[in-house]
């Protein structure tokens, strides 16, 4: 049996987790031109909350929703209380959210401890399916890949086809003019910030079902989201999809080819893309 299709599929499912996390980041950047460095905090916070709820209710779906909601509320709080006034100052927003990340890391370490936890998911999903050319493959990974694809298509269609989506696109192009046409851009900003954070929280629960949740993952997932968004092009959902698939596949192949330097090779991808196309694969020139 050939090992490469398996690695490819592993890369894609890993990319699915990256996509859910980074789509939130790219949405926030696309509309507001700010980067939230608390994105990893939303990720881990959502993951932990999802773990608590899923363990207490024995319901994986409730866990997903809890993670989504918790991170969304955290994002809403951060936006309304801390950064709304400085929205035009992208650097200050980045720095304030960095402060949120520092506090979040410390408090989550205090509350949830330093040991690994894993979100429990139903027994009947803990099976393998037989895929042609690959052999037995865990069903949960395929479900997560499907969730990511559905979510990606949903976001894409909401942005491209609905009225809310057109408001968001208008806001991306020219926030003051959109505001002048009677749209309450402040509300749109708040919603997008909350949704973006909620997506990170969802990614946290999903990732926590596949791999253990650990302190420090907030930092690493923030970085992976940043790399995905840089590679794919900031503000582009298709870009985030391409970027996360690339990052996932490259990191899995690198694990096989050069395990010691897998992380370095993943970043080498970013460097190559930047050298050729500074705005990212799907990004518009700044």
């Amino acid at each position: 049996m050939d090992i490469w299709p398996l690695i490819l599929l592993n890369g894609l499912t890993l990319g699915a987790v990256y996509f859910v996390a980074s789509s939130g980041l790219t949405l926030i950047f696309g509309l507001m031109r700010v980067i939230t460095l608390a994105h990893g905090t939303s990720f881990l916070f959502g993951g932990y909350l999802g773990y608590v709820v899923a363990a207490a209710t024995d319901n994986w779906i409730l866990g997903l929703l809890a993670g989504l909601l918790a991170a969304g509320l955290l994002g809403l709080f951060t936006h309304q209380v801390l950064i709304r006034r400085f929205q035009d100052d992208d650097m200050r927003v980045a720095l304030i959210t960095l402060g949120v990340a520092v506090i979040g890391t410390d408090l989550m370490l205090a509350i949830f401890g330093g040991t690994a936890t894993q979100v429990p998911f139903p027994q009947n999903l803990q099976v393998a399916v037989n895929l042609p050319g690959i052999g037995d493959y865990p069903l949960i990974r395929l479900i997560i890949l499907a969730i990511a694809i559905v979510l990606g298509l949903a976001i894409y269609f909401i942005i491209a086809k609905t009225r809310f989506g057109s408001i968001v696109r208008a806001g991306v192009d020219d926030a003051p003019m959109t505001s002048a046409t009677g749209v309450n851009v402040r509300v749109v900003f708040a919603v997008i910030f909350a949704v973006g954070s909620a997506l990170a929280g969802l990614a946290g629960v999903i990732s926590g079902s596949l791999f253990p949740l650990l302190p420090g993952q907030d930092g690493s997932y923030l970085l992976f989201s940043l790399v995905v968004v840089i590679v794919g092009g900031m503000g582009s959902i298709p870009g985030a999809a391409i970027g996360s698939a690339l990052v996932g596949i490259v990191s899995q192949f690198a694990l096989v080819v050069a395990p010691t330097y897998a992380f370095v090779l993943t970043f080498a991808l970013m460097v190559i893309v930047l050298a050729v196309r500074p705005q990212g694969i799907m990004g518009r020139p700044a």
Partner: peptide, 10 residues
């Protein structure tokens, strides 16, 4: 600006 910051971080 913000791109530079993210790239140096990465």
């Amino acid at each position: 600006a913000i791109y530079f910051m993210m790239i140096t971080l990465a």
